[in-house]
Amino acid sequence: MHLRYVFSELGQGLRRNLSMHVAVVLTLFVSLTLVGLGFLLNEQTKEAEDYWGSQLQITVFLCTENDPNVKCVSDVTDAQRDAVLKVVEDNPEVAGHHEESKQEAFDKVKKLLGEDLFEGPNPPATAEAMQETVWIELKDPKEYEGIVSAVIGLDGVSGVRDLRDELDPIYSSIDALKYGAWGIAIFLVLAALLLVGNTIRLAAFARRKEIGIMRLVGASSLYITLPFLLEALVTALIGVALAATALLSFWFFVIDQQVRGKIRITPWIGFDAVVGAVFWVTVLAVVISVVPTLLLTRKYIKV
């Protein structure tokens, strides 16, 4: 296959339809950025839920040696822990549960406040000072009184944390932002699809003479389609590059440089979340550009 021809056609195609390609790139850029932001918000919710518990979770704190609760005289014993877990397992309001050790609790605190704080001879906290916890997942967020009253008086239980009233508005706001971003993105993705379709129609019209000759002399469908596909891919990848830059900038300048240091109520998303967002945005961009190209080239340049 003469790739030089394909690439020269690609260059010509991009130049010939420059304004349409710019429109496609800009629409893709904005829509993909919104989709990516929605993804980042989703990841942020997961981070917060991991730390504070979700809207369906309550947390049971088990006794420690220096517990503020006077009822606790020592670390929770194995027998007390087993009794608490049995009550939890047998309760009909409970969908599931998991235990968190002192070390796991300490790791979470280190992640939130930064590892550096806990290095050196006099750390502000140690794993030993942390509380063991049982995280309970409810079947119905409204049905929780039975389980709370069942565990609160048990030996070895220091307290029960139920932050659902406080967390609900925060999670709802994040969800509203996420769905808002995705809602707007849907319209923009639709606009991008239509623009891609129009671009292909114009390109097929501009190249109708070449395409006619190629069909007559027996060029394969792939050979005829390839310049169109590459044109679509190039515009999609430029859109992805711009969206990735925007997402990375948002994460770096807003989350990493500002929010992370100032608001320490929850762990914040890391670079891996940005990588995940860019990955899904790339997949979406390729689908948005390649699928209509394949469908429309079949229609406009039927061999």
């Binding site: 070449e210 069909r215 002399v217 027996g218 394969s220």
Partner: peptide, 22 residues
């Protein structure tokens, strides 16, 4: 089959009234 049509057309040359040159 559709994918064999290009192969057939490679065995046929075509000339038109309006030349159809690029």
């Amino acid at each position: 089959a559709g994918w064999k049509v290009p192969g057939l057309r490679r065995q046929i040359g075509t000339v038109f009234q309006d030349f159809r040159l690029l």
